[in-house]
Design a protein around this nucleic acid. Structure first.
Length: 588
RNA sequence: GCCUCCAUAGCUCAGCUGGAUAGAGCAACGGUUUUCUAAACCGUAGGCCGUAGGUUCGAGUCCUACUGGGGGUACCA
């Protein structure tokens, strides 16, 4: 990388000029308004030079000019030394990157296995906007890690047992009249979700009545007959009651079929599935292990705890007095199972930030138990999605359903495409494919361009916009380049040159950073970094496209180079879009 | 109460390990097409970076306090 070479030269310059090496020399990219590509800030080093900032910068600049070939000129503004990289350096880069089919691909993760758990839905209701962010994030982070050379396993931990499932089952038994997805022509997850809401409705009515009879709310919530029934059903489930298991299997089956459809449409997939109904028992052997090691302790009632107060946390229950496991017990077991399955070096959990405490505890317990895989555990904590109307609550039905959301986005893309009327010669199938690619592109980009850690606001009107910093804008830029290439009809070949136009140089300098962008996105597990970068690339290209001619350029060398860098731009955009799960269409 | 995350333009977001005059998109206003795709490009306007201190040659970025908001602190998952 050029930056390392430059820092080396700067260190050399100090050594020769002032007889001492500066520590930790850093370079930054020069701000737009100044001339130059890289900037060295001399303020921290004037102690070494014992000269004023301007003088120091000038001397270092002169040394670099006369001792290197990469830097063609420099200028000094106050204590800032701006270095201009020679045009032929960028020309060389174009040549090298253009002929390197692996350009952008990293090797940091070579020989390392990483498991990414995401989605992890409950099977009592359909997927909504929050899951959509989770799914897209998890899938995209997996792609980023692959691009960094990791061996990636995508895992889904299906939350298929518990009181919430029983609620849907009770409501279906009581009020369902034997309805099935087939008889009602409803997606399975939607049907089950409908009964979850039904349960809540009848249950609330019962609670209200009890309160009217003078019972306080907290007690009413426990005493309501429906709740007692649900708990009874959970006990039956744990006791392997045949009829309960039959209904449970049947209704979960409906849900899985529905989820599969949604996942397919969203373009996400999994390599390993884990079911909580199977993993909830796995944690129990940890309990014995922890007790034996003295990491856990038993209270008189028989419940098992871990004291984390020394780590600034609380005491945490790991096993109930009746011997049943809790959330954390199950997750301990699952972590172990995953490790046995793939032997991961890293294990990423894509789970909302409301679980921060849980994962802190999980990792800490595994560390205390001396598990070799504990240090590799990382909770990718992402922010919730808010609506302009406030928070989403599934029990109250104020959610944005994932399927409906996708429908709306695709519909909006269809309307816009029809309005622009550029799809002459498309078959109906191609047309539908395009609407889908654009609608999903808009949705995915909208959700992924925001830093995962931040909570975000989902404004439907804004998400449907296809201009500016959006997926379709980037897709458009790609399609535009493809169109030029179709007209050109050949594969352009770059030619080494000594001088470049300002726009060409800026585009090349931006493309030059692509490999480091992939590395950074991998370190931070952030698709947003990829999204913002390809947006910059698209904007920079559109600027060049507007200012300079490609096919109309008369100088053959310049024309070839411009086309080659256009092609390289398209390649980078395509790679970036694909990492986000967005299709790079060739016509739109 | 305690813990934790967040606060940047009217709105949605960038701003890398502290560096020069804080950047985009949307919305508003104005301009660019005798066609290499205008889903584009250019311009105008819009900011005491929540408040107050501190560290530093230098702070949106680091530290402290405060204000406002989210989440957590369950023998729910």
């Amino acid at each position: 990388m050029i930056e390392q070479e430059l820092t080396g030269y700067i260190t050399q310059a100090f050594e020769t000029l002032y007889g001492q090496q500066p520590e930790g020399v850093k370079l930054e990219t020069t701000r737009q308004d100044f001339e130059g590509d890289y900037t060295f800030v001399v303020f921290p080093y004037i102690k070494i030079s014992k000269k004023n900032p301007e003088q120091t910068a000038t001397e270092v600049g002169e040394y670099i000019i006369s001792n290197t070939t990469e830097v063609s000129s420099f200028n000094v503004v106050k204590g800032f030394l701006n270095l201009v990289i020679a045009d032929n350096y960028w020309s060389n880069f174009l040549n090298a990157a253009y002929n390197n089919s692996d350009f952008g691909k990293g090797i940091i993760g070579k020989e390392q296995k990483v498991m990414v758990e995401y989605s992890s839905p409950n099977t009592n209701k359909p997927l909504h906007l929050g899951h959509t962010r989770n799914n897209l994030l998890g899938w995209s982070v997996s792609e980023i890690l692959k691009a960094n050379g990791y061996d990636v396993y995508k895992a889904n931990l299906v939350n298929d047992r518990g009181i919430h499932i029983c609620k849907s089952m009770i409501a279906w038994i009581k009020y369902g009249n034997g309805e099935t997805p087939e008889t009602t022509n409803t997606k399975g997850d939607k049907l089950v979700g409908k009964y979850y809401v039904e349960f809540e409705k009848y249950y609330r009515a019962e609670v209200k009545e009890l309160i009217a009879n003078g019972i306080i709310e907290a007690d009413a919530e426990k005493q309501a007959p429906l709740m007692i029934e649900a708990q009874e059903m959970l006990r039956k489930w744990e006791a392997h009651d045949e009829e309960t298991l039959r209904i449970w299997n049947m209704m979960n089956g409906w849900v899985y079929k529905g989820f599969e459809e949604t996942y397919n449409r969203m373009g996400v997939d999994f390599d390993n599935y884990y079911y909580e109904s199977q993993t909830y028992l796995l944690g129990k052997k940890f309990v014995d292990e922890g007790l034996a090691q003295g990491v856990f302790y038993k209270k008189p009632d028989g419940s098992v705890w871990i004291d984390l107060t020394a780590n600034g946390l609380d005491e945490k229950l790991v096993l109930r007095a009746d011997g049943t496991s809790v959330y954390i017990t199950q997750d301990l077991g699952t972590a172990q199972k995953k490790y046995e399955d793939v032997g991961y070096d890293k294990s990423i959990y894509v789970v909302a930030n409301e679980q921060d405490y849980h994962f802190k505890v999980l990792k800490l317990i595994l560390q205390k138990l001396g598990k070799p895989y504990a240090p590799g555990i990382f909770h990718l904590s992402y922010g919730m999605v808010d609506l302009p109307s406030g928070k989403m609550k599934s029990r109250e039905g104020t959610v944005v359903d994932a399927d409906e959301l996708m429908d709306e986005m695709v519909q909006a893309a269809k309307e816009k495409t029809t309005e622009l009327g550029k799809t002459e010669g498309f078959t109906d199938a191609e047309m539908n494919h395009l609407y889908n690619a654009l609608g999903m592109g808009a949705l995915k980009y909208f959700l992924l361009k925001v830093d995962p850690q931040k909570r975000m606001l989902f404004n439907p009107a804004e998400s449907i916009d296809l201009h500016g910093n959006t997926g379709p804008f980037i897709q458009y830029t790609h399609a535009r380049i493809c169109s030029v290439m179709r007209t050109f009809g050949k594969i352009p070949q770059p030619v080494l040159v000594e001088t470049l136009d300002k726009f060409e140089k800026e585009l090349l300098a931006l493309l030059y950073t692509w490999p480091s962008i992939i590395i950074e996105a991998g370190k931070l597990y952030s698709p947003a970094i990829i999204a913002n970068y390809i947006y910059e690339v698209a904007k920079e290209f559109n600027r060049l496209y507007h200012e300079l001619s490609l096919l109309r350029e008369v100088d053959e060398t310049i024309k070839n180079n411009r086309l080659a860098m256009s092609q390289l731009t398209a390649n980078v955009i395509k790679q970036g879009l694909n990492i986000l799960g967005i299709e790079a269409v060739e016509r739109m």
